[in-house]
């Protein structure tokens, strides 16, 4: 189909999308880079001056940045660990012969479709409320004191909510991958006298390596910028306990109106995301060849 007519037409049809995405990427990014070199506050928009890399020095040495960076890493790491460690057995379970599998699938997948503000508020109020929440009731049933989730373990509470939202994603991808596993290969292993455990270790786990990598990379991209869940539950607090980098930048930008500093922070976030994106793009790219 490589005639010249189709080539020319193809280029013409591709151009609008490429142009739009290019503008969408380049204009704000250039502005962010420009702003990051300014001392500029929206509260006093008359007074601005060029300060070079001062904002980066300020942002990176701000103790709030280190706290936010640590919170971001803890949040991403914990959610990844929870979703994969729970998602893998869950996917394996759903891959078995199970009565009513399609209904269970529907129940498991549902949280992914709940908008972030709803899941955060439902968890905060209906489940995690220290007096009237469902968890508090369970705690009294087993005879322990209910936890005051958002005061005692605020970051962990956010982690729980986000993990609940992303567990379906991990499970669904791993389940899809499991179902594409070659049935005859497993039967061959059975004929070779492999036990269920060694079939799992030598065949299933290697088969899952790639989808797990994909889950890690894609979740990381989204988890690095968790925002709504923090916005409606803790507002970053108490103190800075649940402030991640995305939320810190938001605070500096739209609460403190510090354009220069927020832009420097924004660029730091872009760099961090790009490190992850680099690996994801390579995996996807390799798949394109096939």
């Amino acid at each position: 189909m490589a005639t010249q007519q189709t080539q020319v037409l193809g280029r013409a049809l591709l151009t609008p999308a490429v142009a739009l995405l290019f503008i969408w990427m380049i204009v704000p990014l250039a502005m962010t880079i420009y702003f990051s070199t300014l001392h500029y506050s929206l509260l006093d928009s008359e007074a601005w001056s060029f300060v070079g890399l001062e904002n980066f020095r300020y942002f990176l040495t701000d103790p709030a940045f280190l706290t936010a960076l640590r919170n971001t890493l803890v949040l991403v790491g914990s959610v990844l660990a929870i979703t994969i460690l729970l998602g893998t057995p869950l996917a394996l379970l759903l891959d078995q012969q199970v009565v009513g599998r399609s209904i269970i699938r529907l129940m498991v997948i549902a949280p992914f479709f709940v908008m972030p503000t709803v899941s955060a508020l439902v968890w905060k109020n209906l489940l995690m409320h220290p007096v009237s929440g469902l968890f508090a009731w369970v705690a009294t049933l087993v005879g322990t004191t209910p936890i005051d989730w958002f005061n005692d373990v605020p970051l962990f509470s956010v982690i729980l909510i986000v993990a609940w939202q992303w567990l379906p994603f991990a499970t669904l991808i791993l389940l899809t991958a499991l179902q594409s596993q070659d049935e005859e290969q497993k039967e061959a292993a059975e004929m070779d006298g492999a036990s269920a455990l060694s079939t799992f270790i030598y065949l299933t786990l290697p088969h899952l390596a790639r989808p797990i990598t994909v889950v890690i990379l894609i979740e990381t991209i989204f988890l690095l910028t968790v925002f709504a869940e923090i916005f409606v539950t803790t507002g970053g607090g108490p103190g800075l306990a649940t402030t991640n980098i995305a939320f810190l930048i938001y605070t500096q930008a739209l609460v403190q109106y510090d354009v220069g500093n927020a832009s420097a922070g924004g660029l730091v976030a872009v760099v961090i995301a790009n490190i992850v994106a680099f690996f994801l793009v390579r995996i996807v790219g390799r798949n394109l060849e096939a």
């Binding site: 990427m25 962010t32 995305a246 660029l267 995301a273």
Partner: peptide, 10 residues
């Protein structure tokens, strides 16, 4: 993959 927060201000 560009984080939205990176371009929030512009």
């Amino acid at each position: 993959m560009m984080p939205s927060v990176g371009v929030l201000l512009p």
